[in-house]
Design a protein around this nucleic acid. Structure first.
Lengths: 342, 342
DNA sequence: TTGTAAGCGTTATCAC
DNA sequence: GTGATAACGCTTACAA
């Protein structure tokens, strides 16, 4: 059973007895066509099961593929999945499809994926940049008209559009919330690596919240972790200090899980906690988790909208869109601190 | 600033003073080439920033695109994201890229996506089938050699490879676990629609666990929900029955969240709970959540491995791979029932 | 209303 | 070793 070659436009044309161009016209509702040939063409298309080859079409028509190339650190992280969903929702009726790959936050893998996407001639390129990645090589593409958008974090050495969360003010709001409830020693659990944009921004928010409240910055209260287990360990360490914090601020959803789990294991319901990023079951924890929620779907939508405008010819200078975060008080952040309980 | 056309093979050839074919040969390490021209070609490629056009290449070389088309119900659901990650890991070094789209469990959207993927000439097609979708139209493609794999659920009217979790035996194990702890009235919360494969299979497991234990099936204990809120409502309803269940079995991760949240709100720590699918923070709940965990990454890997074998010429008959689930007892499933406490 | 010729950027074939 | 030419499947430009 030899695989029968897929039917082409020419096959349909031969079947009907017209030229390929006529078939093309009918299918794309391009120029005029007599109702009769139209009907015969459509019949033949159905009979043969013909499906136009999009690659061939794209290569002829514009040169670029009708896809959005998206590089994320991790496909399994629902944050990025939701971002992707927001992008898809926005570009779907422009006929664009999502081409996705994960970088594992490795600049080399990110670069390889980017190259593949460029080789595929994606219509839009979106990247959640890895720490240490250099994006200067995209400059040519960008000035040649390819919309490039950085997501969640700005890229390096390339002036282009970015869409990020209000990391700094969100963290500021979360920490200020803790201060308002009487806490004066607040532990900060940050992402790794320490150069990571989101970590730096959130830490900056933490610092200015302390400063604005006239509280000193105690470096002993700063900790780092890049996974749940490490976050749990860091939590233990912080709480074991001679002068321990009475509240904690966790820098992302992964860390939130680790910290919340460790507090539960330790039975420390007296320690206040606010986390950056919402997590499932946050309301069910005891106490329910107070969070600074991001809006990943909106992040994706904003990025897609920006890119589509570029595609439509917007040549204005690079913009950074900031998607607001939202403090959701649920209980863990309202546990009173010494300045209140006293 | 007119967008400078992207350099092509011909541009490189002209720059070097050789033919296009020679450049192609060098780049693909096809036929022989003198070290000298080789060097000059590579230099020109670098200088011009030339990147071969994969669309053009694919159209010429094999006709099919080096992509895996993947249709999932929801990009934001980490279950499917993790599945996608497993696929990517497996196909990456074959040079395949992931083309993804979400169906929202709508057969029409699933079909549209599938058509797009076919038009793009994907090398492999993977689908998490929506309820009510008909896949008979893929028969031609499949017999023409396109690997088609159904994920998580089998497709309809098409004999092809599928990769699913051990839904039935997993549910059986979870429910048996509850029975072993003394429960005789166990509520079942299922997915919607009721025709959904995973729901039917898990319900079958529930039923046979009861049957094997000599327990009667009480239809009043069966409930349906398709989101967290509905699951919470169904939980309330079940617990409000004249003869309420002493244990609950939740049919997926979404429902697990709803049920766990509702039990917490009601303060019902006496009701045992086992859920299908693991969820984040499961260990932190009070009591920690006992689950029947699936293995989404393995699901993706198995699907990809199967498809790659097909691509390599495996023409054996359609197979169904079952990825085992695993019961993880953490506390909520070990709450004793009347037959134990009495 | 329809057809012809040319071309998109690449590779296969077969010469030289 | 290298190059000319045709071809992949489609659309654009122009003619009939």
């Amino acid at each position: 059973m030899a695989a029968p070659r897929r039917p082409t436009l020419a096959d349909v044309a031969r079947e009907v007895g017209v030229s390929a161009k006529t078939v093309s016209r009918v299918l794309n509702e391009d120029g005029p066509s007599s109702p009769e040939t139209r009907e015969r063409v459509l019949a033949a298309v159905a009979r043969l099961g013909f499906q136009p080859n999009l690659m061939a079409r794209n290569i002829r028509v514009g040169g670029s593929d009708t896809t959005v190339g998206l590089v994320v650190p991790d496909l399994g992280n629902p944050f990025f999945g939701t971002v992707a969903g927001g992008i898809e929702d926005t570009v779907r009726d422009r006929g664009l499809t999502l081409l996705m790959g994960s970088s594992a936050d490795d600049p080399a893998r990110e670069h390889a994926l980017t190259r593949t996407f460029l080789a595929r001639r994606v219509s839009i390129l979106m990247i959640v940049p890895s720490v240490g990645a250099d994006h200067s090589s995209l400059r040519t593409q960008r000035s040649a008209g390819l919309p490039v958008v950085f997501l969640d974090r700005p890229g390096a050495r390339l002036a282009t559009d970015s869409v990020v969360s209000s990391n700094r003010s969100g963290a500021y709001e979360g920490v200020t919330h803790l201060i308002a409830h009487g806490h004066r020693r607040i532990g900060f659990l940050g992402d790794l690596p320490v150069k990571l944009y989101t970590r730096r921004e959130r830490l900056a928010g933490y610092r200015s919240a302390l400063a604005d409240a006239g509280l000193p910055l105690d470096r002993a209260l700063l900790a780092n972790a890049h996974d749940e287990a490490a976050a749990a360990g860091a939590t233990r360490r912080l709480l074991g200090l001679a002068a321990p914090p009475t509240a904690l601020f966790a820098g992302n959803n992964m860390l939130a899980l680790g910290v919340a789990a460790e507090l539960a294991r330790l039975g420390r319901k007296d320690v206040a906690l606010v986390t950056f990023d919402d997590v499932p079951l946050a309301e069910v924890l005891e106490p329910p988790l107070t969070v600074v929620a991001q809006n990943p779907a909106e992040l994706g939508k904003a990025a897609a909208a920006t890119a589509l405008r570029r595609l439509d010819g917007d040549r204005s200078r690079a913009r950074t869109v900031t998607v607001p975060t939202r403090l959701i008080p649920r209980g863990s952040g309202e546990i009173p601190g010494p300045a209140r309980t006293r």
